[in-house]
Design a protein around this nucleic acid. Structure first.
Lengths: 250, 250
DNA sequence: TGACTTAGTTGCTGTGTGCAACTAACTTTT
DNA sequence: AAAAGTTAGTTGCACACAGCAACTAAGTCA
């Protein structure tokens, strides 16, 4: 905060402010990500995250929720602010600072998203291949102010720095997985413990032990039994639901 | 990202973009916070965080490092982006979005900060009383888009929403404490295990077990012995140093 | 009826945690 | 010089939890 009366604000050049949203959902036991194919330059034909400009009378979180609904039809999903990306040349059209968000869509609401419409801008669910995580995570100014590493030239799937944003979102999701109940946001209201385990495995990218997993969820009272069972090709599985709590933190 | 050629950016009203920095340091076994007393309205006489406007050719992290050095003389400290605050009326002078950062200053560098200078803008270290944490943490848009809670009117020590920013920084520091080696950033290059324990206790706000604490640090090889001892009023204590590693994550 | 698949449990072992009680080394007090 | 006080650091134990293997249970399918 520098110390001058109101007119002062105009003395400093203002960047454009946007939001971007990384929407995660489970689909066939794999973590998926919602992308939009860009219809016009720059980055025409590349994948981009849903997002847009922040309006004068809204917070960035409200802007993210609004843009998500406008562009994909999704509303009332878990939405969390992630990180602000501000490399001066991240958008070739000019100085654009973007506040990235992460959204989680329950797997029974996959079809709520308007995907593959006949618009110029098609939305699509893509599986999170390991290719995406090879990107360096979001930067930090650490002691010594080390120079910002240049990204190696590689197959550019994503527009702008959206590959870095996706990598940051995945890192955040992983980090919060064990200390919060965020994973339940990707599950239906009622789910089997095996379904829950698949979510953890998809996000962590490795197998987790069945016994340990079930013990944790039940002993910590994160889930409670329901009367219903899920019937399928084999032995029916008990349906559970998340225990309501104030915050997602365990 | 909305789809129009360059001139499009001007179609959307741009907010001012600032950074604020929450600087933590240990002082007399207590966690302290660097504040600046405002010399002019708005919020004249109240405490504010060091910070200022983001320049056109820098990232917000660079802006935070620059402003921190300009206002307090501190450089080469651990600095991490925290959260972006964007409530439309958070600054009475107009639309100002601020990207908050957290910085950690080693206790042997406390005097690097220009504190209590004869300027209009005095910097001061204040102990983190529990009063500060009574503030609600940074908001989230959660399912159902619940209405943003109004803050109760109370003794306003801080300018703007800086009390919320401080609370968010403390929450982040606490959250990362057990899963990272961030605590070492608050310690000198060489430190005793009791000094390290004091840092953890100050941040967590509770006593931690001596045996468990020492076992963890040594068994996880987070620290290594040095040859030196710290001599004082009583039995000398061995000095340790942090084991160098790629990231702060354990 | 038996093979197959998924659901769910039991039992053991190794590891980390919390607590109490101890020893060690120094300074200060008497 | 000895005793008291304070901080440093260790030992030992009980308990909780994680990982692993092996088991039982309940359905489908050939």
């Amino acid at each position: 905060m520098t110390d001058h009366p109101p007119f002062d604000l105009a003395r400093f050049e203002k960047p454009s402010l946007t939001v971007d949203v990384v929407v995660f959902a489970m689909r066939e036991s794999q973590l998926h990500l919602l992308v939009i194919e860009r219809g016009i330059p720059p980055f025409e034909g590349r994948w981009a995250l849903p997002g847009g400009f922040v309006l004068p009378r809204e917070t960035v979180e409200q802007a993210a929720a609004r843009e998500l609904e406008e562009e994909t039809g999704l509303k009332d999903v878990y939405l969390e602010q992630l990180y602000t990306f501000s490399t001066p040349d991240r958008d070739p059209r000019g100085r654009v600072v973007s506040v990235a968000h992460m959204a989680l869509l329950p797997m029974d609401r996959l079809d709520d998203a308007v995907v593959g419409g006949s618009d110029a801008r098609r939305a699509e669910w893509i599986a999170l291949p390991e290719a995406i995580e090879k990107v360096e995570p979001a930067g930090l100014v650490t002691p010594g102010a080390r120079p910002r590493k240049k990204r190696e030239p590689r197959e550019p799937h994503f527009a702008f720095d959206h590959d870095v944003i996706v990598a940051t979102a995945l890192a955040r999701l992983r980090g919060k997985l064990e200390s919060t109940t965020l994973a339940f946001e990707l599950l239906p209201a009622q789910f089997t413990l095996t379904e829950a385990q698949r979510v953890y495995e998809a996000i962590l990218g490795r197998a987790v032990d069945k016994v340990t997993f079930r013990r944790r969820l039940t002993q910590l009272e994160l889930v409670e039994e329901t009367a219903e069972m899920r019937r399928g090709a084999h032995r029916p599985a008990r349906l559970y639901q998340a225990v309501p709590r104030d915050s997602h933190w365990i």
